[in-house]
Write a protein that binds this DNA or RNA. Structure first.
Ligand SMILES: [Mn+2]
Ligand SMILES: [Mn+2]
Ligand SMILES: [Zn+2]
Ligand SMILES: [Zn+2]
Lengths: 143, 143
DNA sequence: TTGCACCTTAGAACCATTCCAATTTGTTGA
DNA sequence: TCAACAAATTGGAATGGTTCTAAGGTGCAA
């Protein structure tokens, strides 16, 4: 059994779990993501997919990507679609995006933790900044 | 000495450090950010600033915000301006954006570290996901 | 077979951001 | 003092990633 077939079946299973169909477009988009793992943009996926499926549309690529993300097969790296937000808090802190209210809260970070996080970088990676973003629900929301 | 005056002076100092001028627009934009720390968007800053400076333009608000970010007085929370990128790697990992090449690299994370990061959330914050993004230069870049 | 929900498609619309050319403002040193 | 130059602001147009919409296609289920 080829890898492509195997992937397609795993995909079909995951889609079925969510009550969704497997389609040629969804299969090819997923194959493209698995084949070259360089975090492509939707446009890049579109370009790659067209060689195997020349009639696919960009709208479908966006639809498929969203479907794959919802099935937990793919992760969207910068998935904040809204406008940039600005923060004058200069202490080391993370951000918590409340998906219900749309509000963004500061979460103080012990600088010791930031160091620990940065220490996971292999040699050769020189980070100028680290950004930590939580997403979820704030039940007893702070201010 | 009023708080506003003090802030304006601190701002002027920081701007001078970068060889930049203090202007009424920059002062008011900074005041607005300090006054209500709710991570406003550029549009929201624009709306708030207009009451004190009715002739300011949206382009200037963007310019001022960028200036404040560059002076390290303000942080841009979702400062990835480019298109969303997609990743089929399902293991827990962070992302490293190489600012030179524009490439995004996966950085494996010990799940123990992810737990430690999540444990900084105060009671009442229920996170569904955590995203960690490094930015910098990869000298001996992996693939 | 027919109905119907799901899916894809092309192109228009949207909207945050950036660009541009013109003007205003501030600084410098003749 | 003022001319020259640089820095900053302004309004509007352009950009570009993403989403929307309306129309057509596909495949399962009764
Ligand atoms: Mn945002
Ligand atoms: Mn991106
Ligand atoms: Zn913040
Ligand atoms: Zn990744």
């Amino acid at each position: 059994m080829s890898t492509a077939t195997h992937n397609a079946e795993a995909l079909a299973q995951k889609l079925a779990d969510s009550g969704l169909r497997s389609t040629p477009q969804r299969e090819v988009v997923y194959e493209v993501l698995l084949k070259k793992r360089d975090h492509p943009t939707a446009d890049e996926v579109f370009a790659r997919v067209k060689s195997g499926l020349p009639t696919i549309s960009l709208a479908t690529v966006y639809n498929c990507l969203e479907t794959l993300v919802q099935c937990d097969l793919v992760r969207a790296v910068n998935f904040e679609r809204g406008p940039t937000r600005y923060c004058p808090n200069l202490r080391p802190h993370a951000h918590f995006h409340d998906e219900q209210t749309g509000k963004t809260h500061d979460i103080d970070l012990p600088s010791e933790l930031l160091e620990k996080v940065s220490s996971v970088l292999p040699a050769g990676y020189d980070a100028k900044s680290v950004e930590i973003i939580f997403r979820g629900k704030a039940t007893k929301a702070a201010h």
